[in-house]
Structure formats: structure tokens, C-alpha cells
């Protein structure tokens, strides 16, 4: 019988055995894994409640081996608020896409952040509606073609890509907001550090934290995974620059 000297890689305990339903090259899987690793490392799996959204990650409640639910479209921050107020000593996080968080759920995310609701939000921004088949999102870039902006997004008709991290960072209640991406191993490491910090802020009871992760959608962008990564780095980061937008955690965690 072979013995194991050292485990160098394994599936995070906080992920369930359910197979991901995501398309090849989609970044949801990477971010799921990062969150699960962070929860394992912080040792909070047994006191964490997750709120999945409506969108491609609607199944996320099943991909994590945690107590969880699915909120109505956009309402995850309100659902998380209810959970957190009922059980203040538990860790509550929402996982939301750009249609969910930046369009139909703007009121809920703004007010949860503004209340300094002690929850963590993981915001996946891939500039398109995935689940419904590639329609324009509030974060769709100017000129980007989608099934509902077939001639490219035109500001006069559709306005501009909305920058949620920048907006929310102006609110007093937001304690940590960072935008990252997961296109390279280095970026994955940075994203993991950011997500960990966001959860630590919650553990310390500091207030609202959110990590926005720029992500690809090769299927709806009509690209290969490699092309999609390149397009993300070259185009999305111009409209959505990476960085920390607010950090009130210094010396606290």
C-alpha cells in the first residue's frame, strides 16, 4: 500500500462532489475553487452560509459543500442581510454575476454596502448575460456585440458600462473592495489573497466587502478560451481597471 508523504494538491473540502456545469474556459470554476480554498484555510466551513444568484452560477449553491440557498435575481444581498441579522456570528457570502448585481440588483447591493452589512460579495463580471444566451449586460463594453446589441453597444441608446466597484467604494459602509482577474497563476494568487481579505474583514466584523473578478465567457463572446483571456486583458481592463478601491481594514486583520 502506497503511503502519502505530502499532499501538494487536492480538491478543497468546501467544494462538493457535484460536477461543475460551466462551459470550457469559463472562470466561474476557478473562482469557486479559490473561495473554497479560502473557506478551508480560514476554517469557517461549518459556520458559513452562501447565497447563490440567478444566472450561470445559479447552481453554485450545489457546488459548495456548505449550507446554501438561491436568491431571486439580484436579491442575494437582501437574502444575505436577513441571514446575517438572524445569525450574526455566522459567515455569509453572496456570489453574483454582472446581470444580477449590476442591473436588476443594484438597489440591493448599494444598500447592503451602504448599511455596512457584514457580509462578503463575490462579483463575477464577464460583460455579458451568460445563462440566457449572451445578451447585453450593464457591464458590456462600448462597441461590444451581444445578441441584444448586435451592432455593438452604443452609449446613446444603452449608456455606459457601469463600474460597480468604483461606485460602491464611495459608500461609508464598504470596508474592502478590490477588482481582480484570474487569467494567469499570478492573478489567481492575487485574487485568492483579495478574497481571503474580504472574508477576514467579515470575520472581524468590519462591514461590507466585495471582490469583483473580471471573467471570460468564451461561449457567448464567440472565442476560444485563450482568445477570451487575451480579450479580457486587452479590453476589459481598460474599462474596468484592476486595483483596490477601498481598504479600511489596515491594522484590523
Amino acid at each position: 500500500m502506497a503511503t502519502v508523504d505530502k499532499i501538494v494538491a487536492q480538491m478543497p473540502k468546501s467544494l462538493s462532489k457535484v460536477e461543475f456545469s460551466y462551459c470550457p474556459g469559463c472562470h466561474h470554476g476557478i473562482v469557486h475553487r479559490i473561495i473554497a480554498e479560502v473557506i478551508d484555510e480560514l476554517g469557517i466551513a461549518e459556520k458559513t452560509l452562501m447565497v447563490a444568484p440567478v444566472g450561470c452560477s445559479v447552481f453554485a449553491y450545489n457546488f459548495f459543500d456548505l449550507d446554501g440557498t438561491v436568491a431571486a435575481h439580484g436579491r442575494a444581498p437582501a437574502v444575505a442581510t436577513g441571514m446575517k441579522r438572524a445569525l450574526p456570528d455566522r459567515i455569509v457570502f453572496t456570489y453574483q454575476g454582472d446581470g444580477d448585481l449590476a442591473s436588476i440588483g443594484t438597489a440591493e447591493i448599494v444598500h447592503a454596502a451602504n448599511r455596512g452589512e457584514n457580509i462578503t460579495t463575490i462579483f463575477i463580471n464577464n460583460a455579458v448575460y451568460g445563462m440566457t444566451g449572451g445578451q447585453m449586460a450593464p457591464t458590456t463594453l462600448i462597441g461590444q456585440k451581444t445578441t441584444t446589441s448586435p451592432y455593438g453597444r452604443e452609449p446613446k441608446a444603452n449608456g455606459y458600462p457601469i463600474r460597480m466597484s468604483e461606485m460602491l467604494s464611495t459608500l461609508e459602509g464598504a470596508v474592502y473592495i478590490e477588482r481582480t482577474m484570474v487569467t494567469t497563476p499570478q492573478n489567481v494568487i492575487k485574487t485568492k489573497a483579495a478574497i481571503k481579505k474580504a472574508f477576514q474583514a467579515q470575520i472581524k466584523g468590519l462591514g461590507f466587502s466585495m471582490i469583483e473578478v473580471l471573467s471570460t465567457c468564451p461561449t457567448n463572446w464567440g472565442m476560444t478560451p485563450i482568445e477570451a483571456m487575451k480579450w479580457l486583458e486587452e479590453n476589459m481592463t481598460k474599462t474596468f481597471p484592476l486595483g483596490v478601491f477601498v481598504d479600511k481594514t489596515k491594522g484590523m486583520i
Binding site: 436568491a71 436579491r75 437582501a78 437574502v79 444575505a80 436577513g82 446575517k84 440591493e108 448599494v110 444598500h111
Partner: peptide
């Protein structure tokens, strides 16, 4: 706990979240 929400849409979803914990809401 008393919380004045931003809208009735948010209210009912807060209720959803709180009810998930098995308490009287």
C-alpha cells in the same frame, strides 16, 4: 432585530434569508 429596508422588494428577500435560519420572522 429591526431593520428598515430600502424597499419592499428588499424586505421580502431579507425575510427569505432570515426565514432560512429557522427563526420566527
Amino acid at each position: 432585530v429591526f431593520l428598515q429596508s430600502e424597499s419592499e422588494v428588499a424586505t421580502v428577500n431579507m425575510l427569505y434569508g432570515a426565514a432560512c435560519t429557522g427563526k420566527r420572522v
